[in-house]
Structure formats: structure tokens, C-alpha cells
Design a protein around this nucleic acid. Structure first.
Lengths: 159, 159
DNA sequence: GAGAGTTTGTTGAAATTTGAAATAGTGGTA
DNA sequence: TACCACTATTTCAAATTTCAACAAACTCTC
């Protein structure tokens, strides 16, 4: 049952949705202005740079980026054309392939990162006090955990 | 100069980005499963339903949705084909046109809203305690204000 | 009231994203 | 081995989004 949200939660909800929308748009614009990378490119590079061997299976990468498989195929092949990543087929499982960070990709990431982080700080992070940081971390880690887990928890007839 | 973020803020930042990405994807999937609407359709309907005369200028609507003008043109013409909105040219300013909510659009919104809000509650809002609601509201209203204002505040050579 | 410069919104081509099928490989099981 | 049911990824067409012109209408100045 449970109609809508109470008015405080409704205001919260709307502020979150709208500001986040604006924020992601702004981050993308800032990043493109300072580098040749889109936000998607950047995220791919970050994930690869942190992965062991600087490589990740396509499926794993798609899952972490919250990309559909076909979107990732396209994304990676575009980055491959620009020399930012390479693609190798996986020896253990020959169905699979992995994206591998190239030297040029790592360089591009290193050049873009300071600008991107500055943008993150300027618009949001520098304004947060410690309590707010703690609160956001708690809320969004909980949300992320829940969503990663509940692959299909849409129709839980739990009452 | 100010290098990256301190490690707590970095964790916060990543949790926010990733969880929000997952969350918006999930909201979209949920909404599509329960209705014939995309999240974009839904937001258009909400904004129109709250506007005086249930109508808005294209530019105003695009600004609030954080859509590019051409994206909105496409979006509205698609909704128009489905009968959810109508388009009229603006009498005061004949360059302009306004999107108007139709009866069918209002009905679609009323049918979809409970499902959508339930989804918002289930994944996020019901988990928040009052302090968290207050914190998120404060943070995201501040962020939204700042971004709405700073149309161009990218290159402030403020040091 | 003509022209210069703006603002509004649309268009068309190119780029990206989705979603359904196709492809290829794995792991049992018989 | 041959078969079957999965799984991982790609491919292809259709839908969507961007980007760079464009047209139309407004504003201001003279």
C-alpha cells in the first residue's frame, strides 16, 4: 500500500534526482572540455588501471560500469580505435575476451584525472563537511550493496 | 593545486557515482516493467502536470529536465505520437511552442506514479532515517542551486 | 522600419545505445 | 563422441541522442 512519500522525503527525492542529473551532465562537459575523454572512457580507464594486470573480462567490466554487454562492446572497440585499450582473447575461456589498458590509455587517464577530480571537488566534494561525507558514504554504499545483490528482487511478494 | 580527494571523500565519491548509476538504471527498468513509460516520459508528465495550465515552453521544460533542446524536441514529438502530450504554438512569442498535458497523459501519469514511487521507496527512500533525509536534502539542494546558477562557472581564474 | 545581433526551436546526419538474434565455447551426460 | 543446456560476447537493425546548421521571430538602434 503505502501511498507516496512524506513531504520531506519527496523534497529529498527530487533534490537528489535533479541535482544528480545536472551534476553528471556537468562532469561530462567539464571532462570533455579538459581532455579527449568522455565520462565513460574515463571510467573504463580507471577500472582497468586498478585491475590486476590492468585487464578485465568484458563481462566483469560491463557489470562494474553498469553497461549493457553490447554497449560495452561498442565502447571498447571505439577506445581500441583510439589506442586507449587493447583487446585480447582470454586463454582460460575462449568465449571470453579481456580489455587491456595500453600505455596511451594510462597516460590519457593520468592527464585527465586531476581535471576530473578538480571538477568533482569544485562542484560537490569540497562543500561537504565530515558528517555529510559520512552520511553520503553510508547511504550510497548501502544502496549500491542492495542493488548489486538484488539482481531480480522486483517482485518480492513479501507480505 | 590540491591533488585528489582524501581517502574518505574518494570512497564517498565512488559510492555515490556507482550507486546512483545503478539506481537510475533500476528505476528505469522498474518503471518500464510496470507501465508504458520511460523515466524521461515520466518526468515530462510530472513537470507538465504541476505547471500552471499544465503546459510549459519547450525551453523551460528542457532546462528543468536537463535535456538538450533537440533531445526535447524528439522526446515531445514521440510523446505526441502516443497522445501523451500535445504541442501548441505560443501566442506571446511566435518563435516558441509549448508542450501541453493531455487527458491521456495525465491518466498515464496517475497510473504509473504509485509504482514508480514504490520503487523509489523500496530501493532507497524507506531505508533512510530522518537525519539521512535531512542530510541528503541539504547536500543535493545546495548542489542543484549551485549548478543551476553556474551556467558557465568553469574557468574561474579565482587564484 | 531596416538591419544587426539574439533567442527559440527544429532538422538532418552522424554517433551512441538498446534489444533481440546470432556465434562460439563450456560443461556435463549419456 | 554426440548432444544439450548454458554462458560470454558480438552483430545488426531500430531507437535515441548529439552536434552543427538553419529558419523564424524578437529586440534594439538608428
Amino acid at each position: 500500500m503505502t501511498e507516496g512519500l512524506d513531504s520531506e522525503r519527496m523534497a529529498c527525492w527530487r533534490a537528489y534526482i535533479e541535482a544528480s542529473q545536472r551534476f553528471f551532465t556537468r562532469l561530462e562537459d567539464d571532462l570533455r572540455a579538459e581532455s579527449e575523454l568522455s565520462l565513460a572512457d574515463y571510467h573504463v580507464l580507471v577500472l582497468l588501471s586498478e585491475a590486476p594486470g590492468q585487464r578485465l573480462r568484458m563481462g566483469e567490466l560491463a557489470e562494474r560500469l553498469v553497461f549493457s554487454p553490447s554497449r560495452l562492446t561498442y565502447q571498447i572497440s571505439a577506445m581500441q580505435k583510439r589506442g586507449l585499450v587493447a583487446k585480447e582473447s582470454c586463454p582460460q575461456d575462449r568465449r571470453g575476451s579481456e580489455a587491456v589498458l595500453t600505455a596511451a590509455g594510462l597516460l590519457a587517464l593520468r592527464e585527465a584525472a586531476p581535471h576530473h577530480l578538480a571538477s568533482a571537488r569544485q562542484h560537490l566534494m569540497d562543500d561537504l563537511d565530515d558528517a555529510e561525507v559520512a552520511c553520503l558514504t553510508r547511504v550510497f554504499e548501502r544502496l549500491g550493496r542492495r542493488l548489486r545483490a538484488g539482481r531480480d528482487v522486483a517482485s518480492t511478494p513479501s507480505d
